[in-house]
């Protein structure tokens, strides 16, 4: 189902992931979060930005386990744990945060 972001129509797949990662802009995350009735805070943006950088470097969306480890390495253990990440993204940091970041669904997520 396509989404409307700042006057543009962007294609998504059947699970709501952006069809073309290059079409991403911060507005995408805002529109998706609004649909989920979630207010995006700086803490959310920190993870979304991190995922964008991860994809840029490795060309994949990390599995949640790997994301948790990588966040811990970069931002410290108080953020690199599932309690913190699920607190921010209740539908799952792998799936929900990757979707907001315009990434494909993480490899290995079912």
């Amino acid at each position: 189902m396509p989404i409307e972001v700042n006057g543009k129509t962007l294609e998504t797949d059947e699970e709501g992931y952006l069809a073309n990662i290059n079409e991403w802009e911060p507005g995408v995350a805002e529109v998706m979060a609004k649909e989920d009735e979630l207010d995006l805070t700086d803490e959310h943006w920190e993870i979304i930005k991190f995922l964008r950088e991860y994809y840029e470097e490795y060309q994949i969306a990390p599995a949640v386990r790997v994301l948790t480890k990588a966040v811990g390495k970069k931002m410290g253990k108080d953020k690199g744990n599932s309690k913190y990440l699920y607190g921010l993204f209740p539908y799952g940091p792998g799936k929900q945060a990757c979707r907001y970041a315009g990434l494909p669904k993480p490899t290995g997520c079912v």
Partner: peptide, 14 residues
Amino acid sequence: MKNFLPTYRTLGDY
């Protein structure tokens, strides 16, 4: 084609 060479570098994390 997708260049998946960078993805091998994440295998250690996996």
